[in-house]
Structures are given as C-alpha cells and as structure tokens.
Design a protein around this nucleic acid. Structure first.
Lengths: 338, 338
DNA sequence: CGAGATCAGGTAAGCGCTTTCCTAGGAGGA
DNA sequence: TCCTCCTAGGAAAGCGCTTACCTGATCTCG
C-alpha cells in the first residue's frame, strides 16, 4: 500500500507538501509542485490511510448507530431517516445490529467509542432490566464525558436527548378504534415482555379498553417476538384458547401479518369474522390483503430527528421530542360479526 | 478520552505492560501488575482507540460491503448472509449504500480502501457502462495489488471471485411457466435498462418465449426502477397500451407487488384475468394476496458464499460460484382467461 | 541598498497504540 | 561464592498522517 511518503518521494517534495495538496490545505503551494504531487497520487493509486488521518487530526467524523436489526423494516425506515441527515452533513454512518441482545449492545457502545465516533444513536426499545440499564447508562455517560453525543430513539431509560414515538398514545388510538367498532372479545399479540415498547403499547391499550368497560385478561395476551412467524404462532394459540375472539391486536405490523397469514390458513375471514390490527405502519402494511389497519409511526422522521439532535451540538439540557402516532384505517378491520 | 498512558500512569506501570495485559499478550505479566492495570482500566472507563490500534498493528480486521440499498429486502437478505459469515469469523462489517449511483460506488471503494478493510464485497447488479467498469476495475485491481480481497455478487464485469445468481436461467424458468400456462399476450415490467441484472433476466425470458413461438415486442417491455411504485406505474402504462394482456412478468418482487396493487385498484382479478409473476422470492412475496408466483434466488446463501470466498484467502485463480434459481408457484398465476 | 515583511516549502513533533529489543534482577548450577 | 541463564518489565521505534513552527529566498519600502 502506497503511503504519503511514497507519494512525496516520487513527486520530489516533502510529505508536508504532499499532504497539503492532497487535502486542499489553505497553505499555498505552487502549481508546479501541486501538479507533480497529483501526478504521483494518480500513478501510485494512492489513498490516504483513514486511520492514520483520524489519529493525526483529532476530528471525529463518523456516527455510530445501534439498532436491533436493519433488515427489520421498522429499523430500515428509521435508518433511512438517520442516513439522510448524516449524509447531508457529510458524515459516515456505522450501523451495528444488536439483534436484541443487551450484551451485544454494550459491546457495540465500546466498539463505537473505540472508533472515535462523534455520536452514538441507539434505536429501538429499551429493556426492563435495571442492571443492564445501569451498565449501559454508565458506558454512555463515560462516552459523553469525553465529548461524545448520544441520542436515543424510543428508550426512556436514557436521560439525554431522545426521540420518543408515542407508543402509549398510539395504543390508545388503537383501543378507541377497537371499541368504536364494537369489539368485546379481544386478543393481543404482544412483543417480547422485556421490551419497554411492548409494555408501553400494552398499557395504552389496557387503559383505553378499561375506560370503555372492556377487560383484557392476561390469558388473552400472548407474548411473541415482534416477527412474522412468532406472530402467527401467538395468534394460533390465542384462537385455540378463545375461539370466540373478534379482534386481534398485534403490537407490530410484522406480527399482524403473521396473524393474517394464520387466519387465512384457517379460512377465517378478515375482517368479516375477525378484525386484525397492526402497529407501526411499515410500507408493507398496505400491500397485504386485506390491507392492514394500523397505527402509523413516523419512522423516517424519527430517525432524521434523532440524527439532528445528535449532531447539532445540543447546548441545552436533555431534549425530548415526542412524535405523535396516527390511526390508519384500512381493510383488515371492521365491526364484529353479529 | 483516557489513553493507554493514562492507564499506565495510574497503574504505575509502563504503557508496554498496560498494553500487554489489556490485549492478553502472550508475554507474561505478574498478577500484581495485571490487577493494577485492570483496575485502572475500569476506573478510567478506558477503551482503546481503534484507529491507533489499527495503525500500530497492521492487522486489517474489518470487511467492507457495498450494496445498492440495505433497506431493499433483496439486499437485506444478502447482507444477512454476509453478516453471518463475517460474524462467525469475528469480523466487523462496514456496510455502504450506493443507491445505484456508480460514482458513489467508486467513492466507497476508495473509502473502504482507506479504512484498510481486509476485503471488499460488491453486491448488486453491474452497469452497462464500459467507462465506469474500467474505472471500477482499475480501483479494485489497485486494491487487490496491495493484498486486499474482492468478491462480487451478481456482476460479471469483475474478473475475480464471484457469486452469480442464475438470472438468465431463472428467467428461462419463468418463461417456461408462462408458456406452460398458455399465455400469449405478455407484458414485462423490467428494471433499469442500465443494469446487467435487467438485461440478463430479459434475455432469458426472451429466449424462452421465442422458443415457444411467442413474441416480446419492445412496446410490451416497460423499464422501471426495481421498486414498488415504479412497478405500479409501469404496469399501468402497460395495461393502457395493451389492455388485452393476460400475464405480467415483473423482473423483481417489489415491482410485482406494485403491479398487484395497481391491478387491485383497477379491479382486475389476479390470477383470473391477469397472472402476475415476480422474481427473487423475497420474504414478503408469500404475504401479499394473492401470494406471488416468483423465481427464488438463494439470497442469504449468496451472501454467505461471497463472504466465504472473500475471507478464505483464495489461493487459486478466480472462482465463480453459480447459484441456481427455482420456480415457486403460488397464487398469482394461472391459465389465461378463455 | 539593507531591514523587515512575505511567502513557499521543509522539519519535526506528535496522535495512541504495539512490539522488538534491551536491562536488571533473581534463580540455579558448579 | 561466582557465573550463567532466564524472567518480567521498560525504553523506544515505529504505524501513516497532520500541522505548528522554522528557514531561506524574494520582495517591499524607506
């Protein structure tokens, strides 16, 4: 691999001069020398060693992002928003998948810190796990203490800048719609118990149902993994327990799609016999049949806001931006059968 | 940010010793000192500067991946495969999105080279653009000349290790199925003209149709962008031109889903009036209604193979692994109406 | 015509780490 | 008791780059 000195030698100048023309430094260099350096660069196919550069300048260019899984549409949308703002500011994004493993999340924080990233963004639900939370906050605090910026998306456990989707409010909208339609026997396909997103959504739903005089007994809540297949399984279990259900609320769209697929396989008509509700409004929600009634979260926007928070040097104390959810009525929901 | 010397000072040892215990070097260190160093690390929340480490060792750990767009399911699947193998080997993955911009692709090659990655993997179709191809190959060659490894997925233009999905063969399967069902009036929603994937698939399809005595006139091929919405548009255009079509072959699933959605909005029954075919078999293909008949490509496998090729030091000359495509019959296809 | 200002370019000191090589001290053997 | 050999630990030389500072030449002006 050619180095700066190789270039300098070949051009017959000092490394300093070579560095200056390559980086377009403000220090003037005669055209003659500039030319020679550029020629040498081309001939040697020279590319500066990014690590050496980062060491020498103390710049901090890149931004780290820790998400549960980019291939999950929920996170690809968020990531798209993050990406957009980062790119606009000429920042490189390092994306890390924790696959919902708290330990891996911790490791990635260290890794990103080691990479000298300018900011770390944590996207995705927090965990109901005080020990982990303490540990994580400690690491983040250490990072912030050295000038790093942190922003989180949808996790209350961190006390700094945050973008919070209104999970609870969204779930209330969902509950209202279910009641408005007149459903009485309602099953819920929830996400992993340990995630705060699950409990927030569940809480909102419970509250609203209670306000309308509905019960949500524990055996009608099934915990799954926020993915399609486990959503289908949970739906099956729900139906087996309580064949008379007329509404199934899945706490994210992937699981709702799983539910749809299971219902189809059992020839249960949606929404005539059973209504299905999702949450998130991923792009795919409108393409399944029947198109999914769901709660829209402005995912791309959330990503963009979080990145903006992280990058704007944030003078004041912790800023929390709450983004509203919105009900999207499509074809998977309707009144219960008579 | 605490440095190694800070740690060493606090522990009352030399940086060398500190480095040794932190990295678990083979050089023996007394428990006494080891202990002191570890305590200092904990107290200072020390994390090694990854750039300095990379500079000092000449290790080359990470692997770079350039894809069109990870949030496109086609690439998330491939990436999953790449990721799996990379993680197994303890490698960090740097993922870059070119968004199908050749210039950006070129830039990313430089960037990754600057990051000293051990290998670069290019996934996604090549371009029909000799100038670009020459440029890209030049850059890759320069990288390989300095010991970097390169593997490509689905691009013929590079002469090194490659994993090639059998686009043409898959398209032939598609053509056969269409003919078998008895369709005569066939429209195609193709991808961007400039991509080799588009032309490969188109060629396979054309060949097979021709063998069965079908024509595929140019006005029945509409070029779109491999995404849902442009697929819908192209389908609309196709139908407007030629209302009598009984089969629409989209050259990827996203566009097929767009086609499905457009047909639904026009109340055209699928497959009774028009059959729709996709390509790739993304996870989502089975969840749309009607479930999509498509050509399965082993996307995850492709990623895994490519990473394996790139990482195994590949002694011999260029290795090309071709992966077969497979027809998946679902509900969106059937015989033409009488 | 010489002193200071100006300018292009070079010199060298790091950035934070790893690792080779060296040293001092202790163990072991004669 | 003295010499050798091993051992743990330190000193220091880089890794490839940037940049503050210095130098020598040219220019400007009194």
């Amino acid at each position: 691999m050619a180095t700066l000195s190789d270039v300098a030698r070949r051009a017959g100048v000092s490394p300093a001069t070579a560095s200056r023309v390559i980086n377009g430094s403000s220090k003037p260099v005669t055209d003659e020398l500039r030319e020679r350096v550029l020629r040498a660069v081309a001939e040697l196919q020279y590319v500066p060693n990014a690590h050496a550069q980062l060491l020498a300048r103390s710049h901090r260019g890149a931004v780290g992002v820790i998400v549960h899984d980019v291939s999950d549409p929920y996170f690809s949308e968020i990531t798209r928003g993050l990406q957009r703002v980062a790119t606009d500011q000429g920042r490189l994004l390092m994306i890390c998948n924790s696959y919902r493993d708290p330990d891996r999340e911790l490791e990635y924080v260290e890794l990103l810190r080691g990479q000298q990233v300018a900011a770390i963004i944590l996207a995705g639900s927090g965990y109901h796990d005080p020990d982990f939370t303490t540990l994580l906050n400690g690491k983040l605090a250490a990072y912030e203490a050295t000038g790093g910026r942190v922003a989180v998306i949808g996790r209350h456990e961190h006390s700094g800048d945050a973008v919070m989707p209104d999970n609870r409010g969204g779930a209330r909208l969902l509950g209202q719609e279910i009641c408005r339609l007149g459903h009485q026997r309602i099953g819920v396909v929830a996400g992993p118990r340990v995630l705060t997103t699950t409990s927030d959504r569940l809480t909102g739903l419970r509250e609203t149902l209670a306000e309308h005089g509905r019960q949500l007994p524990e055996h009608l809540v099934r915990y799954a993994d926020f993915d399609r297949d486990s959503g289908a399984e949970a739906t099956a279990a729900l139906l087996d327990t309580e064949p008379g259900l007329t509404a199934i609320a899945a706490l994210n769209d992937s699981m709702a799609i799983g539910a749809l697929s299971l219902l189809r396989s059992r020839s249960v008509a949606v929404p005539e016999q059973v209504s299905v509700f999702g949450f998130d409004d991923m792009p795919m929600a409108r393409d399944v049949t029947p198109a999914l009634t769901t709660i829209r979260l402005p995912l791309v926007e959330m990503g963009a806001r979080a990145m903006a928070l992280a990058l704007d040097g944030g003078s004041a104390g912790p800023r929390v931006e709450s983004l509203a959810a919105e009900l999207v009525r499509r074809d998977s929901s309707g009144p219960p059968p008579d």
